[in-house]
């Protein structure tokens, strides 16, 4: 894809490369270094980071690129996936956004790339699938990325779509309620 933005994951050495990039290129691309709470570090283009309203607002407030930024509440795995998503979609013009009507949000179809993206989350070895989906959804919600929130919630909705109550409880690991509680839910 021609519009795939520059993405570098330098989690191995865990160091910032902001300065280096600035000096080595003629036309500097604004970059931002992010460190997750489990100490993985990522360097992303400003354009990619701005898919997240959280970073966008932060960059506007600080007027410039801050030092390596510690992202709270987001794990390295989640941030890696988020950057993957944002790099692919950062030049899209018709991402789902908060102004969409309920119906258009519901009827929108998941694109081909997005489908593979979600399937790869599901296939991550061993771990229970729904936990990964929910974890990434929460991270997307925290960083406020409307397109990704739409994709993840849609995918979760698809997994529970035609299922009976007992199976939904199983998926989300909800304990079977007591009879008294059951009675309350019936109302």
């Amino acid at each position: 894809m021609f519009h795939r933005a520059n993405l570098r994951n330098n989690s191995k050495n865990g160091r910032s490369q902001v300065g280096q990039n600035r000096n080595s290129k003629k036309k500097p691309v604004a970059k931002l270094t992010l460190i997750t709470e489990d100490n993985e570090s990522f360097t992303v283009c400003k354009k990619v980071a701005e898919m997240s309203m959280f970073f966008k607002n932060m960059l506007q407030d600080t007027e410039g690129i801050p030092a390596p930024f510690i992202v709270p509440n987001v794990s390295g795995y989640d941030l890696k996936k988020i950057i993957e998503y944002c790099s692919y979609h950062c030049l899209d013009t018709d991402c789902p956004n908060d102004n969409d009507s309920l119906r258009s949000r519901r009827d929108r179809k998941i694109g081909h790339w997005d489908e593979t993206f979600v399937r790869n989350i599901i296939n991550k070895d061993g771990d229970p699938v729904i936990d990964n989906l929910v974890g990434l959804t929460k991270a997307a919600y925290f960083l406020d990325i409307p397109g990704l929130i739409w994709l993840m919630t849609k995918s979760i909705a698809n997994t529970i779509d035609p299922k009976p109550i007992a199976e939904i409880r199983e998926i989300f690991n909800v304990p079977v309620p007591s009879e008294r509680e059951e009675e309350i839910l019936q109302r």
Partner: peptide, 27 residues
């Protein structure tokens, strides 16, 4: 999961039957 996200997830469900199923899962 924040309640807002739950609402997001449920808003993708088409049939009322699915919503009712979800409504019976927990409070």
């Amino acid at each position: 999961i924040p309640n807002e996200l739950l609402a997001h997830i449920f808003s993708h469900l088409r049939s009322p039957a699915d919503l009712y199923a979800c409504a019976h899962v927990c409070r």
